Simulated assay, not measured.
Amino acid sequence: MPTIRSATRGDAARVVQIYVESWNDGFGELMPTIEVTEARIARWADTLADGNWWVAEVDDTIAGLVGIGPSRDPVDPDLGELDTIAVDPAYWRQGVGKALMQKALQALASTYPEAILWTLANYPQGQRFYESTGWTLDGSSRDNGHQVSYRRRF
């Protein structure tokens, strides 16, 4: 079982590695590939410093990350958002994602009555995961139908 802890600026290089690998492996042909860059690491270091990010460790290795915040789309102070959840592909289907989701849901529930997340419309792997953790497709879309949203009430 992974250990969940608050993320720090010092985690940025490993977080970016996980983010890039999970993006490229998970989205495959659905999205263009991305790369690890110094600029991306610097942006993530700033992001991780806001206190709403956690990492999962397995045997002292960061295996995944999750972050939350107020909803950005729609902008609504009473609506939380699951910003990002990503797991190193080497740790997929080992409980890391579920442990991170549990932490995110606890944090969201302590601040918001409801939360939203956005994901790709044709991404069954992600959609099955969200549905298995209590999220419900809400019928909203953006980016010309390329993204769909899920909601969760607390």
Rank of each mutant, 00 (worst) to 15 (best):
W92R: 06
A99P: 04
L120P: 01
Q125Y: 02
T119Y: 11
R93T: 10
P77F: 03
V75E: 14
Y91A: 13
G80F: 07
Q102V: 12
D76S: 03
P74L: 07
Q94W: 07
D88Y: 13
V96D: 12
A104S: 15
V87Y: 06
L79I: 01
V96T: 13
P74K: 02
W118E: 00
L117M: 04
Q102S: 15
K103P: 06
Q125W: 15
P74A: 09
A109C: 09
M101C: 05
L117W: 01
D78H: 14
N122T: 08
W118P: 08
D88R: 05
P113Y: 12
V75P: 03
L120I: 06
V87D: 13
N122H: 01
A90P: 00
Y112E: 02
L105Y: 09
A99L: 00
L108A: 11
R93I: 00
Y91R: 00
A115K: 02
G95S: 02
T119K: 03
T111D: 10
T119I: 09
S110K: 00
P74T: 00
T84N: 12
V87H: 09
E81P: 08
R93P: 02
Q94T: 10
I85W: 01
Q94N: 07
D78P: 08
N122E: 15
V87W: 03
L82F: 05
A99W: 00
S110R: 00
N122P: 06
D83L: 14
Y123I: 03
W92A: 07
D78W: 10
K103W: 12
E114P: 04
Y91P: 01
Y123R: 00
E81M: 07
E114W: 09
T111V: 08
Y91T: 05
Q106I: 04
A99G: 05
L117Q: 00
L117D: 06
A86V: 14
D78E: 14
Y112S: 01
D83H: 02
N122W: 07
P113N: 01
R93S: 14
D78M: 15
D88H: 10
Q102M: 10
V87P: 12
N122D: 15
A90F: 08
N122C: 09
S110N: 11
S110Q: 13
L100P: 04
A115R: 03
E81R: 09
Y123H: 12
G95W: 05
T84P: 04
I116T: 06
L117I: 15
Q125M: 07
N122Q: 13
A115I: 08
A104L: 14
L120N: 09
A86E: 04
L120C: 04
L120F: 13
L100Q: 10
I116Q: 11
E114R: 13
L100C: 08
I116C: 10
Q94C: 03
T84C: 13
I116A: 00
P77V: 13
T111M: 15
A107F: 07
P124F: 04
A109P: 06
